[in-house]
Write a protein that binds this DNA or RNA. Structure first.
Lengths: 105, 105
DNA sequence: TTAAAGTACTTTGAAATACAAAGTAAAATA
DNA sequence: TATTTTACTTTGTATTTCAAAGTACTTTAA
């Protein structure tokens, strides 16, 4: 490993994306409105952050109509789950392991 | 609590700032070059991220000369340590607690 | 002793990202 | 039928991130 943050995934740097992934790890899906409320974010915010995660193939979108109204539902992909888990492991290491300069690796 | 990420500190969203704080939590100080090497970042990068943390009073800077060369040393402040610990607690909660939509809070 | 190379940063300005306001389109309500 | 609400999407600005270039020395080497 070259540096102590090399396994921290840039895609999860932002708290809203962290929140979205964290919700989608425990629930097999969540819709636009739910994410918006859970995260206290604006519409445009949810739209752009989900789009970013989608672009990375970390989540996928399913559009349908529920009660005649459009519904956008987000689901974590296998790739996304794996990437997020690896990110969490990296975080764990960064935070609990020694970045102690006294120790040589 | 209004939303599940309300206690996540925006100042620590970025992996480089996360890394800097994490290093400064276990070591009572670290200098510019050390941070740069540990984090695999460029000079300008370290300069701007430390400046951001400084602006928040989360770290402080001590400038001196070591072997006739300028040396910039960073130290986490009490405020910074507290804020970072709270951030970690919030992360812990977000990641391990239930954002399970099946459960009402 | 001066020229070239290295060290330790800081500044800068372009590129990428984040944001909320405004826009769209259909549904519910009055 | 008009008005409001719901569920998003688009847009333009504002902010942030980034590394290249700049500054101010110090060290080495001729």
């Amino acid at each position: 490993m070259k540096n102590i943050i090399s396994n921290i995934n840039k895609a999860f740097d932002h708290r809203i994306r962290l929140g979205i992934m964290s919700v989608l790890m425990v629930n097999d899906h969540a819709d636009f409105k739910t994410l918006k409320e859970l995260l206290g974010a604006t519409d445009g915010n949810i739209a752009s952050h989900t789009k970013a995660l989608e672009k990375q193939k970390y989540i996928k979108v399913e559009k349908s109509f529920i009660d005649r109204k459009p519904n956008t539902r987000y689901i974590a992909t296998g790739t996304g789950r794996k990437a997020f888990q690896e990110h969490l492991d990296a975080l764990e290491k960064l935070l609990h392991n020694s970045n102690d300069l006294g120790k040589k690796e």
